[in-house]
Each structure stands twice: as structure tokens, then as C-alpha cells.
Design a protein around this nucleic acid. Structure first.
Lengths: 288, 288
DNA sequence: ATTTATTAATGCGTATTTTGCATTAATGGA
DNA sequence: TCCATTAATGCAAAATACGCATTAATAAAT
């Protein structure tokens, strides 16, 4: 059963006149007549009571007119929705991102997305560094924003930003600016650092930093969560090294001393993910 | 857009394999491939992500699979319903009938109908004698059961039953059986009779009855409603002449004395009413 | 690395369906 | 009784769909 036929039927059910209807729907009266006939035989019922002079809906025809109008509208809407899915204007995407950027570039990215595609549904999740790629591969997330350079098979990655590392100390601390730092004075400090993850490019940078001062830090605590680290530093339990993105968080009582080391932020996605939503988001993120 | 195409799509969306699906739906793989392609171009979106090796639903395809399954079921149901309307197995019909038969032949008729067509909706209404034909012509009712013989243009009528007239008296009344009646004794009675409607065949019969006893009755009250008349008779306000169908009503305190006069019950409908429900009901009513 | 098997797409001729034109048949109104 | 209107229909042309055979891509096997 062709939906076009139903549309012809609905037009005729309005007009109740073959010639006028045929003209309205841009076919000949003969074609319309036959379309209605096929529709009737297909359904095994009579839609119109008609003689050579008058056209009138049967009870079944009246019923179908009402129902089909609703159904066709419904279908119309469904098809529009599907089209939006196809164009990546609708749909859902799950993004994992590190805590550090939740107050700096994440808001920028999200603002861009919601402005360009207001109907998109975005799910934000926090995932442990070590799980990120697994989650991506297993379709638990669609996009992972990381500080780790990974060259996994089937995962594409691209740098979208980089920020400086900073030494984080309580306001009362003796370190006020970069020049205050020296190997000797740093050696005396207790450090709170991210979990040391072998092969993580982020922790490699931090190691490189200590190497430049030529000592091994006294690390009394590891934590993966920047917000935890910040809380501990504020309480005076030690000092930390964090990306200066954290400056954008509301963190009174702390001083960020920028260090000449940079850390990259990368965006990762499945190479074979053809979800149009993803394509749209990547385009947005990369376009400037 | 042909619904068949959507069915092909749904089959493929299940199997995700052209050859197997094509076999299942009894067309060739080539035809199926082209059907899906036309569907895609018609909608302006991609339904499957496919290479020469694998078939996979796109997000839009997945969405449409779910929605179309629902819609097609809905349509299926609608078409079945319409078919039942066509066959007169479903639908609504409005029947007017006189009070007198509401406890005798109406229950019989209704039982027959509901047994044969359990899904029919029947509306019963009481309409004044004088309005019945108007209501029929103006599509306010579809069937009128009357005691009046009418030969209106465009109205068909057929006798379905006839019952005797009966003299209705309180149990304590002197009249016990037909032989107790005489012109002299009847003359002394007060009568409660139906509204005298000129040209009504029913009231003509009652007039004929009195003519056979050769006197004009003392009618102190007219009422069109049998149940009202019965209540008045029971209170001793007079005696009445009613169709003996009323005997089937629960009416303690009354005696029905059958009279040798019969009154017909006719069923009336519009000659040009092609509602299949009507046809079915007429067939049922006439078949024995 | 090469071959083989699998599988979706496609060119092409045929079959089916749909369409428009012209005509027919029925019917209401003058 | 005739005329105007209008839905149905015969027929040929156009459009569409189909099946067969083949192609092209690719995953698995060797």
C-alpha cells in the first residue's frame, strides 16, 4: 500500500469530487479513480459510496479518513525526526572528560555545541584515565577528552588545547612566584601528585619537570582527582602540580604558580564511528 | 512510499543480511537492494551503514525500525477495524422503539444482534410517535420500530410481529374476562388512552374497537407512554387498552383481558441507507 | 602475500504497473 | 426529452520494478 494512495484518498475524502481532487493533486481523474479502486481492493472494503453523480464516504471510509490523517502526520513527524538524526542535529553522544577542564574548555565546547545543535542530548561522564580507551572501544562513551597521547588502533586523536602546569600552594605558603622555586627548597616540600600511571604522557611530563630540578619528590599521597588534590593542598597537607585549567575553578585560599611545562588536551573517538552527531561535534570543535 | 518497502526494511533490519532477507521475503537480492536504496533516497537519509561485506543500522535506521514497527502494527489494526466496519460487524446503530415492546420482542431482537455481532454498538432511544419518521430521515436514528404503517418516500417498512390489544384493569375490577364486556358496562368506564394522533394506524385500531361496541368512550386522560398509563390504571384512575406486550413487564395488581384486535409492529429504515450494520441487522431480524 | 569465498551493488532486458487521453455510461436538472 | 456533469474504462505510452548475470569489495583461509 502506497502512502501516496492514502494521500489521494484523503484529498478525495475532503473534496468528495473526482475532477476537482484530481486537479488538486496533479493527476488525471482517470488515475485518481483507479488509485482509489486499487486502494479499495487492497483493503477489501469500500471507501466511497458512489454513482456516476455523487461521492460519499462509507462508514469504513469515514473511519479511515480520521485514522489515516493521524497516522500520516505521525509518520511525517517520525521521518523528520529521522532526518535530523541523519544530519546529526538530533541524537545522543556521551563524552568523558577530565575533571581539570570542567571549568575551562568544557563549558566553551558545550556552549558551542548547544548553540549550533540545540536538540542534541549530551551525556557527560567522568571515567578513570585507565578506562577511557576501553570505554570508547566498547561504545560506553563516544568521545574521550584526555591528556594522554594514545595511538591505539581504531582510535583517532587530535589535540584541541594545551595548558601550562602550575605549582599549587596555599596562599600562606612561602612560594610566591616561579623565581622562588629551587631544587633545594622544592626538595623540602611534601607533594600530592596524580596517580603515577606508567606510560601516561601526563605523568611523564610531571616526571620531566622534577628531572629538570634534578631531584625525586617526596610524594606522600597520590590521587587521580584534581578536586581532591586541591582540597588537600588548601588544608596545608602538601603542595601539588596541576594543569592551570584548575585556576578557572572557584578555589580561594590557593596560589597557582605557572611552570614552563605544557600539557596537551586531546580529543579521542572511534575511527569507524559514523554517527553524524559525532561528525558535527568534531567539526565544531576543530573549526577554530 | 510503499508500506511494502518499509516491511522489506524491517526484515533487513532484523537479519542485517541481504541474501537471507531477500529469500525470506521472496524477492531477489537485487530487488531488495534497490528497494532499500529507493527508501533511502525517498527519505533523504541513510538507513544502513554498509560495505560489500557488512550491513549495520545507522542511528536514523535504528530509530525508524523501532517507530515503523509500531506504526505498521497500528495501521494493521486500523485496517482490520475498517474491514469490520465494512462487513457490518462493528459500528453504531441507533434504534427507536415504543415502550410497549421493551420487555417483549426488543430483548429478543437485541439478544440476537449481540450474539451474532458482539462488537456492535447499539443505541436505544425513545422517540415520540410523531417524530419518528423525521428522526429517521434526518439521520438521528437508523431504525424505527413502530406500530404505525407509513408509506413515506424513501422509507422502507416491514412487519416483524403483531400482538393483541388487551383491556387493562386493576385486579379488583369487575371485568375478569372478555365475556364480561358489553357496550353498556364499557360505557360506564373511564378510559386512559394513547394520545389520539390523526392518521396513526394504531389509534385507528383502537377507534375501530370502540366502534365494534358502538359507543364513544369517556376518555379522561391521554398519554403516549404506556408505563404512565399502567401506573394510572393500577391506582384505579381508569382502565386502558394497550398491546398485550405489556404483560411481559412486571406489573402486579393488573389484569390483562385479551381483545380480538391485533396491532402490527413494523420496522422502518431509510431506503438509501447502505450502512452494512443496518443490512446485517435487518437480515437477522427477518431471517425467521 | 595470494587466493578463495562471500556479499552488496549494478547493467540490462523483460514484465508489471501506472498514467493520460479519449470515450462511455449513468444521472440530475432544464 | 435533451443536455450537462461526472465517475468508470479501453487502450497505448511511459514509468517503475524485477530477475539474471556480473562486478567489485573484503574478510577469511592458505
Amino acid at each position: 500500500m502506497d502512502l501516496q494512495r492514502i494521500k489521494y484518498f484523503l484529498a478525495l475524502a475532503e473534496q468528495l469530487h473526482y475532477w476537482k481532487t484530481a486537479e488538486k493533486v496533479n493527476i488525471t481523474q482517470s488515475a485518481l479513480s483507479r488509485q482509489i479502486q486499487s486502494l479499495e481492493s487492497e483493503l477489501g472494503l469500500q471507501l466511497f459510496e458512489r454513482n456516476k453523480r455523487n461521492v460519499k464516504l462509507t462508514p469504513a471510509g469515514k473511519f479511515l479518513k480520521e485514522k489515516w490523517e493521524v497516522e500520516l502526520n505521525e509518520l511525517e513527524y517520525i521521518h523528520q525526526f529521522a532526518k535530523q538524526l541523519h544530519l546529526g542535529e538530533r541524537g545522543t553522544i556521551t563524552i568523558a572528560h577530565p575533571d581539570s577542564i570542567s571549568a575551562s574548555i568544557m563549558p566553551d565546547i558545550l556552549a558551542k555545541i548547544t548553540q549550533a545543535f540545540p536538540k542534541l542530548q549530551i551525556k557527560l561522564v567522568q571515567v578513570l584515565y585507565e578506562n577511557q580507551l576501553d570505554f570508547l572501544k566498547n561504545y560506553k562513551i563516544d568521545l574521550a577528552i584526555t591528556r594522554d597521547i594514545t595511538s591505539e588502533q581504531g582510535i583517532h586523536a587530535k589535540k584541541i588545547y594545551s595548558d601550562h602546569l602550575a605549582l599549587v600552594v596555599p596562599l600562606a605558603h612561602a612560594f610566591k612566584k616561579f623565581e622562588d622555586l629551587s631544587t633545594k627548597r622544592l626538595k623540602a616540600q611534601k607533594f600530592i601528585l596524580p596517580t603515577k600511571d606508567e606510560g601516561s604522557s601526563y605523568s611523564e611530563i610531571i616526571q620531566a619537570l622534577f628531572k629538570s630540578y634534578d631531584f625525586v619528590p617526596d610524594v606522600f599521597l597520590h590521587s587521580e582527582f584534581g578536586s581532591t588534590i586541591i582540597a588537600l593542598v588548601r588544608k596545608g597537607l602538601g603542595i601539588a602540580i596541576l594543569p592551570d585549567s584548575y585556576m578557572h575553578h572557584q578555589s580561594p585560599g590557593l596560589r597557582f604558580i605557572p611552570l614552563p611545562f605544557k600539557t596537551d588536551i586531546l580529543i579521542n573517538w572511534r575511527a569507524d564511528d559514523h554517527n553524524p552527531v559525532l561528525a558535527n561535534i568534531l567539526k565544531l570543535v576543530f573549526e577554530n
